[in-house]
Simulated scan of single mutants.
Amino acid sequence: MKVALVQMRSSREPARNVRDAEALVREAAATGAAYVLTPEVSNIFEPDKARLRAVIRSETDDPLVAKFSDLAKEFGIHLHAGSVAVKAADGRIANRSLLFGPDGKVMARYDKIHLFDIDLPNGESYRESATYAPGEEAVLVQLPEARLGLCICYDVRFPRLANAYAAAGAEVLTYPAAFTVPTGEAHWHVLLRARAIETGSFVLSAAQGGEHDGGKATYGHSIAITPWGEVIAEAGTEPCVITAEVNPAEVALARQRIPALRNARDFTLKSI
């Protein structure tokens, strides 16, 4: 399966993001890719939470969702909106991954499970859960060529999710992201390669990259990694399209060489 990863630099203006995303998806489809992935928050990159709440729409009214449905049908591809920020039922925001089938219909939805809540040593705190509603369900999707486990950004720091997907038969793990530059420089490659190696899975991540409206920067480096942990495609920080080949036979071979999934055992923990 030929895959394409779309790297974006989403802005605070949804209409502009739809235009930019459409151009890049068209470029990706022209490569012959059967599956195209875009980054986290493809529809809007808005650091001001009050403005974000005011601007976003429901999934059914979001213009990028409508455009992606049309593009998937036009090109007959699986088009994966890595995530879009949409209104959730409880009044908060859903960070939602949407996978469109070749008929233009949404065939899978995944809401980001793990949210970034932290209390810093200097007394500051950050609560993503105050704005976003967490997902409760992991989603495994069967494509004609491979089975996908859907994740979003911060999920990469939780190997239990990746292992659950792999144990259930996932051959590809997707991590659309908007990593900050400091955490990207420190952890991006090692985390994504670790998830690939420990599960014997392909890992695909389409990322936000560069300096966005308001001066906030994201790390970029959209990446495709084999089940053996090898990087087979990687972007820089500019908006672009990269491609790679995903062969499920490589998954079977990696899991045969290192049968970690089969060798895993339950255990108890004793504290002394």
Rank of each mutant, 00 (worst) to 15 (best):
T31P: 05
A254Q: 00
R160E: 14
T38Q: 08
V156M: 13
E198Y: 03
E22N: 03
K216L: 13
D213R: 09
L192G: 02
E234K: 11
R147I: 11
A94F: 00
D266T: 12
L5G: 04
E250A: 09
G169L: 11
D119T: 13
T218C: 14
A146P: 01
I258C: 11
S11F: 01
V18M: 09
S222Y: 07
T38H: 05
C240Y: 00
D103V: 10
A166T: 00
R26W: 06
T38N: 06
Y126C: 00
P259I: 01
R255A: 08
E230Q: 13
I225D: 00
G236I: 02
A23G: 08
T226V: 10
K67Y: 07
F179W: 14
E198G: 04
I44K: 07
I56R: 10
L161S: 06
S129H: 11
E185S: 11
A50E: 13
A133F: 03
K87L: 14
R16I: 05
D20F: 06
V231S: 03
I77E: 07
A108T: 06
A196G: 02
Y132P: 03
A167S: 14
C153L: 08
R19G: 01
E171Y: 07
T174R: 10
K2C: 07
L79S: 02
E22D: 10
T38C: 12
F116S: 05
R26F: 05
L161P: 01
A249R: 15
G123I: 05
P144C: 10
K73V: 04
G82L: 05
P47F: 08
K73G: 06
N247A: 12
A194D: 13
A177G: 09
H80D: 15
E198T: 13
R193L: 04
C240M: 10
C153R: 08
E250W: 15
L71Q: 04
A34D: 12
D70N: 07
T38R: 01
P63S: 10
A264K: 13
L253Q: 13
G236T: 02
S58C: 06
A30F: 00
A196S: 15
P176H: 02
G91L: 04
G169K: 10
H189R: 14
A224F: 03
Y165D: 03
L191A: 13
V190E: 11
I93T: 08
G101A: 12
F116A: 09
E59M: 11
T199W: 02
S125Q: 10
G236H: 08
L148S: 10
A94Y: 06
D266F: 12
P47R: 12
R193T: 13
C153Q: 07
K105E: 15
T237L: 00
L204D: 03
V84F: 00
L161D: 04
S83Y: 02
G149P: 05
R257Q: 12
A130C: 04
G200D: 10
A194F: 07
E13H: 12
G200K: 08
A94D: 15
P248T: 06
R51A: 13
L269R: 14
